[in-house]
Design a protein around this nucleic acid. Sequence first.
RNA 1: GACCCUAUCGUCUAGUGGUUAGGACACCACCCUUUCACGGUGGCGGCCCGGGUUCGAAUCCCGGUAGGGUCGCCA
Length: 447
Amino acid sequence: MKVRVRFAPSPTGFLHIGGARTALFNWLYARHTGGTFILRIEDTDAARNTQQAVEVILQGLRWLGLYWDEGPLTSDATGPYKGERGPYFQSQRREFYQRRVEALLARGLAYEHEGAVKFRMPREPITIHDLVVGEVVRKLTDREELDPDFVIQRSDGQPVFHLTNVVDDLEMGITHVIRGEDHLSNTAKHIALFRAFGVEPPKYAHIPLILNPDGTKMSKRDRGASLTTYMEEGFLPEALVNYLCLLGWSPKDNREKIPLAEVIERFDLSQILRHNARFDFEKLLWLQGEYCRELPDDRFYELSVHALAKAGIDTNRFDLRYVKAALDTCKGKIKVFSELPAYGGFYFRDDITYDPEAAKQHFTPENKPRLQKLRDAFARAEPFDAPTLEATLKATAAELGVKPAVLVHPVRLACTGRTAGPSLYHLMEVLGREKTLQRLDRALATF
RNA sequence: GACCCUAUCGUCUAGUGGUUAGGACACCACCCUUUCACGGUGGCGGCCCGGGUUCGAAUCCCGGUAGGGUCGCCA
């Protein structure tokens, strides 16, 4: 039997990082087995769902590279879709639910209650054979003992999650339900529903949740909870995907950075860990740095220009060769593109503001004549390239009887306004003689 | 309150009865070095607790504790 899995988010306006991982694991399993990955939008809560909220999900999944084999083609619920089992928006599937509710009603497996329809839930414990968690025997809670039956259709006629979820999984021929562990307790209800419809439930795999660094539940407003922030901060999808693979799954050979193709090859549900994982932002950042450093130049330029533009720095005003040369000195140094404006923005503006703390330390009366002497040496340096500038600076330092570092810091501060940045000699070469001397003169005039 | 899941360095993990408990991130030190990164070397640091089973338990069983989840006319 061909594997059919689905990611079934509710359009709430954001895509939770845990949801992204759920999508990833579904996608990985589909790719591993040669199965079908389906995207289904659970937009039954009409009041809350907007097309824009759907767009967030589609864009997020596309950004991650998790393309679906069946599902919507656009965020329009009534719009086109691919796949034989559509539509893939629950809001467009009313008749499926209606028909199923009527069937249950007709067979006495459901009944009306105050205008709503309730399902007759079995009183006996239900055993869930979970591919990740193992065998789980779910008993009724004390509140459920009082009334085990649950609403499947609201008094306004709208179907409820448990019903729509099960009906769609059934109609869409889902073979494996891979979802967050927060649904484990609900699974007994779903199994009971499947049985009431006279079919075998799909296989279940409940994956552990992603928690905040402090171990608490990661909710909407927690840092890093929304996929959008990673997109906006300039993370690379391949880095985030790699990191997410390592949360609850392991290649078991001590590797951290692992090509997605290999994950697909080795991934299996039985290897998924059973415990929740805390989100380690630092480790993601490290992986991000690894991927960022190895980026092909063209993609690095493209993402850099975009990040700079977002910070109000228009690189189009500069010669393309200058822009590329400038960015080359930043590559391998920054980890996330959101760092770039602060790190390499000085290439693209002349109104350098000096780090006050550093200015106090390096723009001293003692350093002024030294910097002046170096400035004059730079004015004569020929050619104006990194090796010559380095030799010039070191020779000047020797003449002055100081260590090169004594000159390096004030020069860097004058050119960039900061104490950390790209290689000093290379950044001066990129700036060129004119700008470099201008900046040194400007700095010399401030103290 | 009830039900369910989980428990290895701070964090992510390897480990399935016999290991000096391995790796990665982070942290610290040193090296490299024009700053910062990168890289290299070394270091710090862990089997939640208590019972059992066994010659032997991180590993199996039971109990506790802790964390997480669920019990909705939200999904």
